[in-house]
C-alpha cells in the first residue's frame, strides 16, 4: 500500500511536470513533445454544439 502510494505520488509529480510543459506560450522541443504526449493520451476534444449560442 505504502509503495503504491509512493508510486502514485511520483506519477502525479511527473504528470504535473509534463502538464506544466504543455502550458508554455512558446514551447521548446521538450514542451512540444509533452504536448504530443498529451494529445496522444487524451485525444482531440470534439466541438460540443451545446456550447453554441445564436447571435443576438
Amino acid at each position: 500500500m505504502r509503495f503504491k502510494e509512493w508510486l502514485g505520488g511520483a506519477k502525479q509529480r511527473l504528470m504535473t511536470n509534463i502538464a506544466n510543459r504543455t502550458f508554455k506560450k512558446n514551447p521548446g522541443l521538450l514542451d512540444r513533445l509533452a504536448i504530443r504526449f498529451l494529445r496522444g493520451s487524451i485525444g482531440e476534444v470534439p466541438h460540443d454544439p451545446e456550447l453554441d449560442h445564436p447571435e443576438n
Partner: peptide
C-alpha cells in the same frame, strides 16, 4: 510570467 506560461501548477507533495 504571462508571456512564458498561461498556467503553472505546483508539483504536489503528500
Amino acid at each position: 510570467f504571462s508571456n512564458e506560461n498561461y498556467m503553472y501548477i505546483q508539483p504536489p507533495e503528500y
